[in-house]
């Protein structure tokens, strides 16, 4: 039902001219710039893309699970837990992610290496690599930002609904599972998709601690081919596509969830 108007909006004369100009620009970029490195680089780019997406998905899922207790403690926890989670969110949200990342990678990495117990344990082969630190920093950051969002969502659920649930004799856990959590999640959904896009845009930071994600692969290509613009332009194009796919997918998901109104 929206398509005809969308099509008509895209067919406005100035948009046609702009699209033609963009197409001409694209053709000029392909024709005049140097792209012969691309076929050989494709497998590495694909691997980098997988690392980026795995980091995004893993940190969003784990971070969200951490965000729930963080939000709940702030809403109804006993005061030491409330202050702890409030402090955690404030510190993580008040300092740059890059700084946290480097603190974990250089600081924790050097600290762990001092203990023979850790060096000989099963975890050392993982702790020697860079990605666990990147994953940790990304997860904690997502948890802090999302915890703040969920806190607002939990407090925003009308009190009467919770009282009604209690009045029909639901146990506290059942109230949470059937009423409080679903209602809060539904309120938080639009912000959640925004946070996921922001998280996608944070992932290239892990390239600075030698994780070979999409950004790191591109940097490597730039160093070996001595090209300034071409790999960067490709990277911008890939991130544009990723964001677009994420936005469309998340909106589709959002629309599938019934509002009950």
């Amino acid at each position: 039902m929206e398509n005809p108007t969308l099509l008509r909006r895209m067919m406005m004369p100035h948009r046609l001219i702009m699209a033609a100009m963009a197409l001409a620009g694209l053709v000029a970029i392909i024709a005049t710039m140097q792209w012969d490195w691309l076929p050989a680089a494709l497998p590495r780019l694909w691997q980098g893309l997988q690392v980026t997406l795995a980091m995004l998905a893993g940190s969003v899922v784990t971070g969200f699970m951490l965000a729930l207790p963080l939000a709940l403690f702030q809403v109804m926890g006993p005061s030491p837990l409330r202050w702890l989670s409030l402090g955690f969110c404030t510190v993580i949200r008040g300092t740059p992610l890059l700084l946290q990342l480097w603190l974990f990678y250089f600081g924790l990495g050097a600290l762990f290496a001092q203990f023979p117990e850790i060096r000989e344990s099963w975890a050392w082969p993982y702790l020697r690599q860079a990605w666990p630190y990147g994953f940790l920093a990304l997860t904690l950051s997502f948890a802090a930002y999302q915890g703040e969002v969920m806190r607002g969502a939990f407090t925003g659920v009308p009190h009467g609904e919770l009282e009604a649930a209690r009045a029909v004799g639901m146990s506290p856990w059942l109230v949470f599972r059937r009423v409080w959590f679903p209602r809060a999640l539904h309120r938080a959904l639009p912000t959640l998709s925004g946070e996921i896009i922001l998280q996608l845009k944070s992932t290239p930071l892990i390239a600075t601690i030698t994780v070979t994600d999409l950004y790191a692969v591109t940097t490597r290509i730039r160093q070996t081919t001595l090209l300034t613009y071409e790999p960067l332009l490709l990277l911008v194009a890939i991130y544009l596509c990723l964001s677009a796919i994420l936005i469309v997918g998340l909106r589709w998901l959002e629309n599938r969830i019934p509002t009950g109104r």
Binding site: K201, V236, Y239, L240
Partner: peptide, 26 residues
């Protein structure tokens, strides 16, 4: 005008969709 409006739209779309680090490098 129509063109200016669309150009501003493209600018904000690109800024919000591409990682800050990549934008800064570019």
């Amino acid at each position: 005008g129509l063109v200016l409006r669309d150009l501003a739209e493209i600018y904000t779309m690109v800024i919000r969709a591409v990682p800050e680090l990549v934008l800064m490098l570019l």
